Simulated scan of single mutants.
Amino acid sequence: MAKYDYWLTDDGLQLLAGWARSGLTDEQIAHNMGIAVSTLYEWKKRYSEISEVLKNNKEIADIAVENALYKRAIGYSYTETTKEDGKVIKTVEKEVVPDTTAQIFWLKNRQPERWRDKQEIQNSGNMDFNVTIKVVE
């Protein structure tokens, strides 16, 4: 059995899916597979099953993080339940205030033309103007 054969089985693809959904990089996934990252890149080109399972599950993880960042940026509320011996003792509604850092990160990445720190201004070079300096003694 060739080394890649296992990774094309349902068990192998499920393991790859789990690693991708957990946020592992291609380098980490290759390490877990016991292969060089260049081999993983080659297998992704050659075997669409491997490429698709990694792509789709990385996307799932990215969406989950994006949703969490968005939630943190706008703030949210949740119910905290305290239990003792399996019985509910207290239920409290808590609120997490919007996070300015999350808002800045979101805006800089989603709308960089409006929110980047450094604004680029282009000058056509066709502006003629004269400056007169008057020295007052």
Rank of each mutant, 00 (worst) to 15 (best):
Y70W: 09
K71C: 07
R72W: 01
R72C: 02
R72L: 02
R72M: 01
R72V: 00
A73T: 00
I74E: 01
I74H: 03
G75F: 01
G75Y: 02
Y76L: 03
Y76N: 03
Y76E: 03
S77T: 11
T79R: 05
T79N: 04
E80R: 15
T81N: 06
T82W: 04
K83A: 08
K83T: 09
K83E: 10
E84Y: 12
E84L: 15
D85Q: 15
D85V: 14
G86K: 05
K87M: 05
K87P: 01
K87Q: 07
K87I: 04
K87W: 03
V88N: 10
V88G: 07
V88W: 07
I89Q: 11
K90V: 09
K90G: 06
T91Y: 04
T91E: 11
T91P: 01
V92C: 09
V92D: 15
V92K: 12
V92P: 04
V92L: 12
V92H: 13
V92S: 12
E93R: 12
K94M: 09
E95Y: 10
E95T: 13
V96I: 05
V96Q: 11
V97L: 08
P98L: 03
P98I: 02
P98K: 02
P98W: 02
P98S: 04
D99F: 00
D99P: 00
D99R: 01
T100E: 06
T100R: 07
T100V: 11
T100C: 08
T101N: 14
T101F: 05
A102F: 05
A102E: 04
A102R: 03
A102M: 07
Q103G: 02
Q103C: 08
Q103N: 04
I104C: 05
I104Q: 06
I104A: 12
I104E: 09
I104R: 06
F105Q: 13
F105A: 08
F105H: 15
F105Y: 15
F105S: 10
F105L: 14
W106P: 03
W106R: 14
L107C: 07
L107Q: 03
L107E: 01
L107I: 06
K108C: 12
K108D: 14
K108M: 15
K108F: 15
K108E: 14
N109R: 14
N109V: 11
N109A: 09
R110C: 08
Q111M: 15
Q111E: 14
P112F: 06
P112D: 09
P112H: 12
P112I: 05
E113S: 12
E113P: 00
